[in-house]
């Protein structure tokens, strides 16, 4: 039997539960009609001002971008860690070079202030 098949079972059970619960809620907790402001987005009791889908700082975009790059680096570490004992000192040196180059990038990103939140 494929060892990944039970993961599918788990996924199906979890999804079925979530869907069933949401369907039940839809059925039992049907919203009752009310004035329009009952359905207005909550802004601490004040009438909503402006659009809710406004622009947001590019900072978040930068973090996501840096995350992808470092995430790829982390992913590379896993196959290396698995065969590390066979590679020995050689493995140590090659990963030191890899991480050394990326460390330069990390320091650059830090120095340039991309990790600051203000």
């Amino acid at each position: 039997m494929n060892p990944y098949l039970p993961i599918l079972f788990m996924l199906v059970i979890a999804t079925a539960f979530a869907l069933a619960a949401m369907a039940l809620a839809l059925f039992v907790g049907r919203p009752r009609p009310g004035p329009e402001r009952k359905f207005a987005p909550y802004e601490c009791g004040i009438e909503p001002v402006g659009s809710a889908r406004d622009r947001f700082p590019v900072k978040f975009y930068l973090v996501a971008m840096l995350f992808i790059l470092f995430d790829i680096e982390v992913i590379f570490l896993y196959p290396w860690a698995v065969v590390f004992r066979q590679l020995g000192v050689f493995g140590l040196i090659e990963m030191a070079i890899f991480l050394g180059i990326l460390l330069v990038g990390y320091i650059y990103v830090w120095r340039v202030g991309a990790l600051e939140w203000q």
Partner: peptide, 18 residues
């Protein structure tokens, strides 16, 4: 959610999680 606070919360949470 069409709500400023929701959007902020979602962004904060996702940036924090990644």
């Amino acid at each position: 959610s069409n709500n400023k606070y929701s959007l902020l919360g979602g962004l904060r949470t996702s940036a924090q999680m990644i």
